[in-house]
Amino acid sequence: MIFMILEITLRSLLISGTATLLATLWSTPIALSISMREFMGKGAVKSLFTALIGMPTVALGLILYLLFSRTGPLGPLHLLYSPSGIIIGQAILITPIIVSFMVSALESVDPGIRDLARTLGASERKASLAVLGEAKRGATLAVVAAFNRAIAELGVAMMIGGNIYGYTRVLTTTIALETARGEIELCIWMMVILLVIVFFLTLLINLFRRD
């Protein structure tokens, strides 16, 4: 039983961790270009990302299920009922969180910094990196909040992963299944682990933010 709990915890961390890394990889450039540039409909784009934070996980799960299903448009990739499928789903789910939080963090940086970097001869890209460096606390918070959302979500993991034992079973789907099975003790263990992960990460970030 302890082996099973460890294995499921490790899988949860790997899946949601990878999803967070992937989402960060593409969300950072998006956030940078939204906050650094002026363009038509900028406000609308920002509102859209903010609104998408509230995307219900079951809605995303259903959309991805129809896409990944064998008869769906992405069927040949065999992503349904696989950990990669959950990773993609969670990465999509948390992209709006990272983008929105990061844009706020970047926009709160003194605009003088970017101009200063430019006057000192930095390229557009280097200037962006300088601003990102200034906003790193806010950016870290965005990533941690996104990870917490990913590891705690149930809809995508259940509908895309299918909760297959030893393959796509993660902390949240185990809790859902074992509650139905009446294995309350196991559920409580899983819940404690989930809470410890989420609290511990947030605590760590708060310590980091203090200095």
Partner: peptide
Amino acid sequence: VVGCFIIGALVYIEWPYRSGQRLQ
């Protein structure tokens, strides 16, 4: 480093599925 981590994680968690016979 991040790329290696992602690939490593994928291989590790996909392994039981891609290797050997299975029935859904």
